[in-house]
Nucleic acid binder design. Structure first.
Lengths: 204, 204
DNA sequence: CTAGAATGTGAGTAATTCTCAGTATCTGGC
DNA sequence: GCCAGATACTGAGAATTACTCACATTCTAG
């Protein structure tokens, strides 16, 4: 509500404390996933991490900060992987269809590879806190990359900024809503294929 | 997590209690919006509604149930309005462009008309609880309607079920992410126009 | 008018987040 | 090796909050 944005209260200096910090985050990830945000109490998290509740609050100013740290870790991973794919595609300079297929495929694969972590952060979280900021900044980042690809391929209509943003929003939502949970009788791969076709028609 | 789905504990029988029920919901809407889910305590909600905390728990088994009731009210309103538009479009049987423009426009208008309520339910909420179920069922509902329109217009590719689902996911996300919060220098109307163009290319 | 149903009350309980005064461990300079 | 100060850890308990329950009030039907 009030506190601006959760940031680790104190940075570990000795190795011992780095291990404590990691243990807490790991315990938080497990318990949030298993019990949900409300069900995972800070005391349980500290206990599972094998430290006292006081130690937890030495590194995380509040419960939300745990989620924020997990989100940051995950977003960093996602953005890193995706930027690599963007770089590859930029280097190879393939035609539109191949470009779309690679990019959409990469996003889908990333989501399918750790669906639980992703759901935790995407679904299970009171957004306003902190995670929303992370998501938004990641989307902005990705939209900028997509815009560059649109320019390279000479597609995207008159306002590439808007087109790129809309594409990112759409693809992200489709992955969450349809790839991770395909309609009856369809496989994730089929849904991805349908997404690629739609993207191609939008841009082709 | 555990409890199945929050349902009013007791239905109001006398008019007096109906007013109490309404006052509580109204207070909850205001405070959730202003203070967020965590910041709005049940005691504050009861106080603002002018009733005792006990009365609140007579009609709502827990805090989540307040959110669920608000979500239901809102979803009912949305679905009602949209079904009317679908019916109109079906009756008038306009060509593709006009159909898309009307439907996307209607969704955007609905969101723009009470952006705060919508954000509350869409962003500010721990999803797992109950609201997720509502959203999903609404999306399924809308996807079925869209599918019917695709059939009417003879578009949508080989698998209209998947196409319709993907369209609904995309448009919903775009409205939330780009229409309610347009990129710098663009108006909501411009974003909607861009969405319509993209949809038309997807289907045309 | 009255019995019983419906509605309303709010102090109190249990659970949870977070603090802080005190203890233990480490590190670098001598 | 030893000591001083920095770093790290502890856990009882303060503060907050969701929720209960025994009781009081108000309504309705006969």
């Amino acid at each position: 509500m009030d506190g601006p944005i959760s940031i680790p209260r104190k940075t570990p200096r000795q190795q011992r404390s780095q291990e404590t910090y990691d243990a807490i985050l790991e315990a938080a990830a497990q318990l949030f996933e298993r019990l949900g945000y409300a069900g995972a109490t800070t005391n349980k998290i500290a206990e599972r991490a094998g430290v006292s509740i006081g130690s937890l609050y030495q590194y995380f100013p509040n419960k939300d900060a745990l989620l924020y740290a997990l989100g940051e870790r995950h977003v960093r991973h996602l953005v890193g992987s995706l930027k690599a794919v963007f770089a590859e595609v930029s280097a190879d300079d393939p035609p539109l269809e191949e470009s779309v297929r690679r990019l959409v495929g990469a996003l889908a694969d990333l989501h399918l590879s750790e669906p639980r972590t992703h759901r935790l952060l995407y679904d299970q979280v009171p957004r306003p806190a902190a995670t929303a900021v992370q998501l938004r900044s990641m989307q902005a980042d990705m939209a900028a990359e997509v815009e560059r690809q649109l320019s390279r391929l000479g597609v995207g209509g008159p306002d590439r900024v808007v087109t790129a943003l809309l594409l990112v929003q759409a693809v992200e939502a489709q992955v969450h809503g349809a790839v991770l949970d395909p309609p009856p009788g369809r496989s994730a791969a089929e849904v991805v294929e349908a997404m690629v076709r739609l993207c191609l028609r939008m841009l082709g």
